[in-house]
Simulated scan of single mutants.
Amino acid sequence: MLIKKIVWRRLIIALPVVLPFSSCEDVIEVNLLEPETRLVVNGIVRVDMAEEFVDVQIRVKESSIFFEENTITQLESAVILIGQANEEDPFDLNFGTSVLVETNPGSGIYVPSYIPGTDTDDRIRTEFLNENTEFFLVIEHKGNRYAAQTLFSPTVPIDGITQGNETLFNQEETEVVVTFTDIPEQENYYVFDFGFGNFLEVNDEFTDGQQFTFSYFYDERLQPGTRLEISILGADQQFFNYIDLLLEQTENNGGVFQTPAATVRGNIFDVTGLDNVNIFDNVQRPNDFALGYFAVVQEFKQTIIIE
Rank of each mutant, 00 (worst) to 15 (best):
T263Q: 10
E140S: 12
D270A: 08
E307Y: 00
F67D: 13
Y110C: 05
I80Q: 05
E175M: 02
F169Q: 11
G234K: 00
Q237H: 08
V277G: 14
N282H: 01
V40G: 02
E127C: 15
F217S: 00
D275K: 05
F91Y: 12
R145H: 04
V40C: 15
T263Y: 13
T73C: 11
F206Q: 15
D281A: 12
Q302P: 11
I58Q: 06
L233M: 08
E140D: 12
Y146F: 13
S215W: 09
L100G: 04
V283G: 07
N104R: 02
V54D: 01
F180L: 14
P112Y: 02
E62A: 03
P224H: 04
F199N: 02
V178I: 10
I65T: 14
L246E: 15
F180S: 06
T179K: 04
K4Y: 11
T272V: 11
Y146W: 06
Y114Q: 08
Q74E: 14
Q223E: 12
D92I: 00
D121W: 00
Q84E: 15
D89I: 06
F95T: 10
G292I: 04
N253L: 08
D121H: 01
R285Y: 09
N130G: 10
R59P: 06
V60P: 09
V60N: 02
V56E: 00
I243M: 07
R285P: 04
N276Y: 00
I305R: 05
L233P: 03
F21S: 12
A148E: 01
N170M: 13
L200G: 09
